[in-house]
């Protein structure tokens, strides 16, 4: 175009690139800092001065984390709720979205509004909590899975995707004598892999990251997920981490104690973040697709 050689524009382009690169650095560097701290001897880290490389390199913090039965157990709980919760939720969400996609369904508009309205208004956390209590869901592992089976947003995204599948495909199957369930399982689901991946990943990340239900709906320490353990570490700072260490007998076993509450916290942060960062490069394109499907209005 005519102003391609405009000097100010070219200057701006370079400036633009630098700003974006700086933003990306501001995202990467904090993680490098945490990683460096988690790989550094805890007592040495207390002196400060560690930026992006460990000074006294040591795996001690991670060894300690994996010795903690609480943390290992929490890792298992997180894994369980993420896998089981996501699979059930995606299947049920797809079923509901498929039904809502059927244009001829009597009362479709009312049912859609009935679901959509819950996004605009809710009864608040206290009645919700009391409902969970009356259902005897609190203090069980199901409190992680059952109340998060459906989300309005996910149903709407799936439905929008299903609506793009031409009706003629279903009609052909129906003429061939397929039942609705067969159409759903054998035609719609295999055609919807991208949206299933997207919703599944949204779900999985939400499960993995959720600390709230573990903190407020569950008392039994053996049922707490990893995110809640980390939250308790943050809130109670030193106290909990130190108590954890005393329980594990670390003080007797290791002559020179190098692990501190803080360094244990750093290793736990990495443990919470690692699974997400490791799968992130493979999944991020699905996320972007999901957001864009969701933004398409009917």
């Amino acid at each position: 175009m005519f102003d391609e050689h405009d000097k100010t524009w070219r200057f701006f382009k370079i400036f633009n690139l630098i700003i974006v690169a700086l933003l990306c650095l501001s995202i990467i560097l904090p993680f490098l800092n945490i990683l460096a701290l988690s790989l550094n001897e805890g007592t040495d880290a207390q002196r400060g001065g560690i930026s992006f490389f460990p000074r006294e390199f040591s795996f001690e913090n991670y060894i300690e984390v994996f010795k903690q039965s609480t943390i290992l157990n929490a890792f298992g709980i997180s894994l369980f709720r993420t896998v089981v919760g996501t699979i059930i939720s995606v299947f049920l969400t797809a079923m509901a979205a498929y039904a809502l996609k059927t244009k001829t369904l009597p009362g479709r508009k009312f049912i859609t509004f009935f679901i959509f309205f819950t996004m605009l208004f809710s009864g608040g956390i206290v009645p919700y909590y009391l409902v969970l209590t009356e259902l005897h869901l609190t203090n069980t592992i199901w409190v992680y899975i059952i109340p998060s089976l459906y989300s309005v947003w996910n149903i709407l995204i799936m439905r929008t995707f299903f609506l793009q599948i031409p009706d003629s495909i279903e009609e052909a199957a129906r003429i061939d004598g397929c039942s609705e369930f067969q159409i759903f399982l054998k035609i719609i689901l295999p055609m919807s892999k991208p949206v299933i991946a997207t919703i599944g990943l949204f779900n999985a990340v939400a499960h993995w990251n959720d600390w709230f239900s573990g903190s407020f709906y569950v008392r039994n320490p053996e049922l707490k997920p990893l995110a809640t353990i980390l939250q308790e570490m943050l809130t109670r700072q030193q106290a909990l981490a130190d108590a954890l260490m005393k329980n594990s007998g670390a003080y007797e076993l290791i002559e020179k104690i190098t692990v501190t509450g803080d360094s244990l916290k750093m290793a736990t942060i990495i443990l919470v973040v690692a699974p997400i960062i490791m799968i992130y490069p493979f999944i991020q394109k699905y996320f972007v697709k999901g957001v864009n499907i969701g933004s398409v209005k009917e």
């Binding site: 933003l23 990340v205 990251n209 959720d210 919470v272």
Partner: peptide
């Protein structure tokens, strides 16, 4: 890279 922090729990961000 810029999308990444969205997928981290606030617990992690506050920890950092």
């Amino acid at each position: 890279i810029t999308y990444l922090p969205h997928f981290l729990s606030w617990v992690v961000v506050v920890g950092i």
